[in-house]
């Protein structure tokens, strides 16, 4: 549907079949809870649950390939910077001449990195098991304006097309002698000659698209009927409420002294 952009992997697991809203609530609550939870082990617990769900959805291998590419650099950066420079730093772990590494910064970085790992896992759990078209469809059935639904769906289709066009323009400009390699100022100078034709050609297409939509009744103020309904159940509805209420519950617990 969305070409090269979507991460969706076909599957028949429980998560694939769940209502998109249930998965959406699960993702948002898991992220919120990871940032509300007070200590390292709570966050590890949430991460373990999320990874179990990723495994249950049968996308663990693909998940690791994508998630590690994001998590590894940011984790290393956090460990490096916080270990050396954190206002809480007291206890020395090791010292190499003038460079001193501290334990408090290390703990701080580990907690931050684990929370980010929860954010990434929860989001990918959603993207791997939900067709992008279904998200917009489910939201429209719950009252999202069909115009916004169009914007999301159409963006998902236009982005790969535009990126493809960017590649073509790059080849064309290079054939005309544009330098896209070399020193930084030289590469920076190449930015505009690549960007301008791309934007102009994609903007020029909008008027036609708008007319085509108008002719098909896009602007009409009528009630839209869904092409298909998503399977929903009392259990899922209860689960959604429980997950959504867990967030304010956790905040109250934190205020009341959850350590």
């Amino acid at each position: 549907m969305a070409g090269g952009l979507s991460l969706y992997a076909e599957g028949t697991s429980l998560l694939h079949r769940a209502h998109p809203l249930t998965k959406g609530v699960l993702t948002l609550s898991a992220i919120a809870l990871a940032f509300i939870a007070p200590s390292l082990w709570w966050v590890v617990g949430i991460l373990v649950v999320l990874l179990a769900l990723v495994t249950a959805a049968g996308v663990l291998r693909r998940f690791f390939a994508v998630a590690l590419a994001i998590l590894l650099p940011i984790t290393l950066l956090l460990l490096a910077v916080q270990g050396f420079a954190n206002p809480l730093n007291r206890t020395v772990v090791f010292a190499l001449g003038p460079i001193v590494y501290y334990r408090e910064g290390l703990a701080f970085a580990a907690l931050a990195a684990l929370r980010i790992a929860c954010l990434v896992s929860a989001t990918f759990l959603f993207s791997f098991t939900t067709r992008p078209a279904d998200i917009a469809e489910a939201l429209m059935q719950r009252g999202l304006s069909p115009r916004m639904g169009y914007v999301v769906q159409s963006a998902l289709q236009i982005i790969p097309q535009t990126l493809e066009m960017a590649g073509r323009i790059q080849d064309a400009q290079r054939a005309r002698g544009l330098e896209t390699q070399g020193s930084l100022p030289r590469r920076a100078r190449a930015y505009l000659p690549l960007m301008l034709p791309l934007v102009l050609s994609s903007l020029v297409a909008t008027q036609e698209r708008a007319m085509a939509l108008e002719v098909r009744g896009f602007g009409l103020k009528v009630k839209r009927i869904a092409r298909y309904e998503f399977f929903d159940s009392t259990l899922q509805r209860a689960l959604r409420w429980a997950l959504a209420l867990a967030v304010p519950g956790a905040i109250v617990a934190r205020v009341a002294g959850w350590r």
Binding site: T162, A166, L194, M195, S202, G219
Partner: peptide, 22 residues
């Protein structure tokens, strides 16, 4: 109004292309 709505996905694609070219 429709034109403005249609413009939004194009702007989103320009955001992506700008980042990809960079």
């Amino acid at each position: 109004n429709t034109l403005a709505i249609v413009l939004i996905p194009v702007c989103i694609a320009i955001d992506w292309a700008g980042h990809a070219l960079a």
